[in-house]
């Protein structure tokens, strides 16, 4: 079932001025409930503009945004409740930290929801665990943390609201491989424990292949492809046409096939490739022996 749906959405910056820019052009898409959906596209393709429509931070110039089949702009006064249901982690969220302690900062969202102190404390600890934040750091000032720790603290601040839909805009940008793995695993854990729908914007095809069920490809302010990981990555020519690649391991596999080594088709992660190659190897050994 569709958790979030965009119908013919347009978004224009600076409408009616000489600086008018069309950031979204007739965008329609559908995010299935309980899935991890990846959004890929080049810089300036409209991804970040699009995610800000999902929790009503900006209002589309035309078209509708549906959450559970209901227009989120049907009651604009009630927008706060939409924002608690659709948690958005913006790009470089570490710059939004402001409280004296990490604990207080993570509690900001739940406090705005009007929860009891006990409930808030419970959620802060839970969210910190999801984000992979050491409980000892909770009483530090957020400004004393390292870059990766700040990022995790900011993400925990959204997870603490227990949103039904968690939207992450480039959550791993500028982090080292270990940092990005920790954050993506935390995201997956949050989804498994809470059953939430996750939308994740990223540049990394590898991360997308590893974590996503569905993929939406954006280019030039439009949605150009939409489907399961397998469907999207099998259309490598079309991806290349909008300046995107398939995961590196997939192109390695297709070259191996071209060389006559029969690895399976539709391989998008290193783990799958290893499995396929070891199977192939075992078969060869058997036929020899």
């Amino acid at each position: 079932m569709a958790k979030i749906e965009l119908q013919h959405v347009n978004y224009i910056y600076g409408e009616g001025t000489p600086f008018e820019v069309r950031a979204l052009d007739d965008v329609s898409l559908c995010v299935r409930e309980g899935t991890v959906t990846g959004i890929i596209g080049h810089t300036g393709s409209g991804k970040s503009t699009m995610v800000q429509l999902l929790n009503g931070l900006s209002r589309p110039s035309a078209g509708t945004v549906l959450l559970d089949g209901e227009d989120i702009w049907s009651r604009p006064k009630d927008m706060r409740s939409i924002r608690f249901r659709v948690g958005l982690v913006m790009q470089y969220p570490e710059y939004q930290l402001f409280e004296e302690t990490v604990r207080a900062d993570i509690a900001y969202g739940p406090k705005n929801m009007g929860l009891s102190a006990q409930e808030i404390e419970e959620r802060v600890l839970e969210a910190a665990a999801f984000a992979g934040l050491d409980p000892a750091l909770l009483d530090e000032s957020p400004f004393d943390l390292s870059g990766g720790q700040k990022r995790r603290a900011a993400i925990a601040g959204i997870m603490a609201m227990r949103p039904e839909v968690l939207v992450l805009d480039e959550p791993a940008a500028g982090l080292d491989p270990r940092g990005r793995d920790a954050i993506l695993r935390g995201m997956r854990e949050y989804r498994e424990k809470s059953g939430a729908t996750v939308i994740i914007v990223s540049h990394s095809m590898e991360d997308m292949a590893r974590f996503c069920d569905d993929i939406i490809v954006m280019a030039h302010s439009r949605v150009v492809m939409q489907g399961s990981c397998k469907e999207v990555f099998s259309r490598s020519d079309e991806l290349a046409a909008v300046g995107l690649d398939i995961p590196e391991i997939s192109s390695v596999c297709s070259r191996l096939r071209a060389q006559g080594i029969e690895v399976g088709e539709g391989i998008f992660t290193v783990e799958e490739a290893i499995r396929s190659l070891t199977d192939l190897f075992a078969e060869k050994e058997k036929s020899k022996g």
Binding site: Q52, N55, L57, R80, R83, F84, G87, L88, V89, M90, P93, Y95, Q96, Y108, G109, N112, M113, G157, I158, M161
Partner: peptide, 13 residues
């Protein structure tokens, strides 16, 4: 604008 959006996303009013 970005910071305002980020805090609004956390329910700031």
């Amino acid at each position: 604008e970005k910071i305002m959006a980020a805090q609004k996303a956390r329910g700031a009013d």
